[in-house]
Design a protein around this nucleic acid. Structure first.
Lengths: 106, 106
DNA sequence: TTTTTATGTAACCAAAAAGTTACATAATTT
DNA sequence: AAATTATGTAACTTTTTGGTTACATAAAAA
């Protein structure tokens, strides 16, 4: 069972769940009410999200409130950021400069 | 067949392929030589990467040179960036400030 | 205390993913 | 011309994924 952040956000329903929970806590049923798939299906998605640390669950009586832990997405950002030289104009310019300098020194 | 960038980078082999091709072009066999799985398996991964635009293929005789198109990762960065307030200290501070201001005005 | 509600989970299913081996083909080398 | 090389792809297998329905259980409400 791969259970990493990259795999977790590969599914669009899970990305939507995170979006939904970004600024509010909801219990599982309330989350499910936002989707056309069954509650057990949502329950599974939430389990996956919580297993990889993207979501915390706070039990309150019979209810389970879900809270996104979006700080975990930093892992993704860090991975992506190492390539940002490929679209960030400032970094692109810097990169070109460094490449030229490197050639000069040969 | 979902074929989007999120799904493509969910697989760690594909992330490694992108890493390998970030600063060099290699033909398919040369890519495969870096992994323990079979050449056809790599061929499939490369197909997936190219289908979602993360990689370009340049035919040269019987060889196919693979070049990463990492600019495509901006899609991922853009998605992730909307949540960067959850780990970026500057943004965190700004966010806290705005939340307080909002409360004041109530 | 009975009923309703929030939830987990088992059992099942279909489709997709990730790999394999075997074979075909076209371009290069020898 | 024959052999080698780079590659695609078909056929197959196993595992994983994403969903379903049906049932169990504990908490809250009536």
């Amino acid at each position: 069972m791969r259970r990493d952040v990259f795999q977790a956000i590969a599914d669009s329903t899970r990305r939507e769940i995170l979006h939904l929970l970004a600024h509010q806590q909801l219990n599982l049923n309330a989350v499910a009410a936002n989707f056309n798939i069954s509650r057990p299906a949502i329950s599974k998605h939430i389990k996956i999200l919580s297993e990889c640390g993207l979501l915390m669950i706070q039990q309150q009586g019979r209810e389970r409130f879900c809270q996104a832990n979006l700080g975990k997405l930093k892992e993704v950002q860090d991975w992506v950021a190492q390539y940002s030289v490929f679209w960030d104009n400032k970094l692109l310019a810097l990169n070109n400069f460094l490449v030229k300098e490197k050639k000069k020194r040969k």
